[in-house]
Simulated scan of single mutants.
Amino acid sequence: MSSTDEIIRQWRHFGWHEKFRDVLGQNSKLVEKQIVCLKNSREKTTIWQLMITDGIEVLPVVLKIYKPPLKENHMVEMKMYQKASLTLQEFMPQIYWMERNVNGEEVWMFMEFVRPLRGQIKLTPKHFDAIIPTVAKFHATTFESQLEQHSNISDSWLPHYDSQSMALERSKHIEKTKKYLDLAMKDPGLRGVVEPSYTAIQQILQKGPVFFPEIMASGQSLIHGDLHVHNISCQNATTNQDWKIQFVDWESAKYAPVWFDLVVLVEILLDFRKDWQKDAEEIRSHCAHLYSEEMKKYGITFQTDPLQLLKMTYLQRTLEKRLLNHLRRVVRGEKSQLLERYLEKTMVWGKELGLY
């Protein structure tokens, strides 16, 4: 795994100060005592903050290191920065350059540092009003026929939700979910959690992998795919002015129904924030309709009620993979914060939306 010493060694070996002079238009050097590891992801990627100085001012830079063998999601993220950034420059940090074949087959990507939203403010539901307009603008840029105008994005490297391969993968996940429900029922410690919803959810799973055609009918665009608040950055969230939001960590990007990003941004956060849950219906309703109104500004309207679309997409996401992931965890003896929420909301919203 990379270390501070390794970064310094490679910096000197490749003479990266020369490249930064080309990028920044001035002589620069690495501040070796201010290298900080921001994230270590199971020894596949690491993210570092570097400080580059011209002797007077200091510029923070993000270094993301991809370890071989490169996974498909790593390739997607690199392509996003190489190709999609031409169209989506407003929504993502600037890439300075990628250095390939470091330590053999590693890829080192140097990019603009944009301050994470978390840590700048204490997040409250009202802050969705500052975030959702940018999400809508991002989606509208590649919504449906708009994508055809951007051949740099619509190449074969971009995963498509409605592709045969992804549909087959969802079907396989649903079959595994059925099996893990059975395994949980056989576990004395889990049976009490699963049993109240077991019969209904097994019945619902038979209707997959497309549980709500309305989600596809609502339209697709390039989505971020993992749009939780840790992946949202902006230069200054303490002002009431435009935050100039940018999104980071594009490994889950795909062409897919737009409401998946709203589910992660709003509904999954509600699942974690117990202090918000007493006002959950008001929050989700406001966010769903705000997003719908913002999309109207770009000529995009939804035939199905926005709140229903949010709930439908939450259940689709839960049933096609997330429920499996959390059942697998608890069967292995690990903890899950979301399993009971998934089961409860599948029962309540499944009945409300006619799944059983």
Results as ranks from 00 to 15, higher is better:
Thr124Gln: 12
Thr124Gly: 13
Val135Gly: 04
Pro125Val: 05
Met92Gly: 12
Arg115Glu: 15
Ile121Tyr: 02
Ser156Asn: 07
Phe91Arg: 03
Arg115Gly: 08
Thr134Ile: 12
Ile204Met: 11
His150Phe: 11
Val135Ser: 07
Leu123Glu: 14
Asp182Ser: 09
Gln94Phe: 04
Asn152Arg: 08
Glu169Thr: 05
Tyr198Phe: 15
Pro196Gln: 05
Phe211Met: 08
Arg115Val: 13
Leu117Cys: 02
Val210Ile: 15
His127Glu: 11
Leu147Ala: 06
Phe110Gln: 05
Asp182Pro: 14
His173Gln: 11
Met166Phe: 05
Thr141Phe: 01
Thr134Glu: 08
His139Gly: 00
Val114Ser: 04
His160Ala: 07
Met166Lys: 13
Pro213Met: 13
Tyr198Cys: 00
Ile95Thr: 12
Ala200Thr: 12
Leu190Lys: 03
Val114His: 01
Gln202Glu: 10
Ser165His: 06
Glu195Leu: 15
Pro196Val: 12
Met216Cys: 07
His224Tyr: 11
Pro209Tyr: 03
Phe91Trp: 09
Val194Glu: 11
His150Gly: 01
Ala130Thr: 11
Arg170Lys: 08
Thr124Asp: 09
Phe110Tyr: 00
Gln89Phe: 02
Thr199Ala: 13
Phe211Tyr: 15
Tyr161Lys: 13
Glu90Asn: 14
Ile215Asn: 03
Pro188Ile: 10
Pro116Lys: 05
Gln89Cys: 09
Tyr161Trp: 08
Glu112Arg: 13
Leu147Val: 00
Gly192Cys: 10
Leu88His: 06
Tyr161Glu: 06
Lys176Phe: 07
Phe91Lys: 01
Pro133His: 05
Ala217Glu: 10
Trp157Glu: 01
Lys186Gly: 08
Val210Glu: 07
Thr134Met: 08
Ser165Pro: 01
Gln203Asp: 12
Met111Ile: 10
Glu106Phe: 07
Ser154Arg: 05
Tyr198Asn: 00
Gln203Phe: 07
Leu123Trp: 04
Glu144Ser: 02
Thr177Gly: 02
Ser171Asn: 03
Val135Asp: 02
Ile132Cys: 01
Gln94Cys: 08
Ala200Val: 12
Leu117Tyr: 14
Pro159Asn: 00
Glu175Lys: 07
Ala200Cys: 06
His224Gln: 15
Gln89Thr: 09
Ile204His: 04
Glu90Gly: 04
Phe91His: 10
His150Val: 00
Phe138Tyr: 06
Phe110Trp: 00
Val210Ser: 05
Ser197Asp: 14
Val107Pro: 04
Ile132Tyr: 03
Pro213Gln: 13
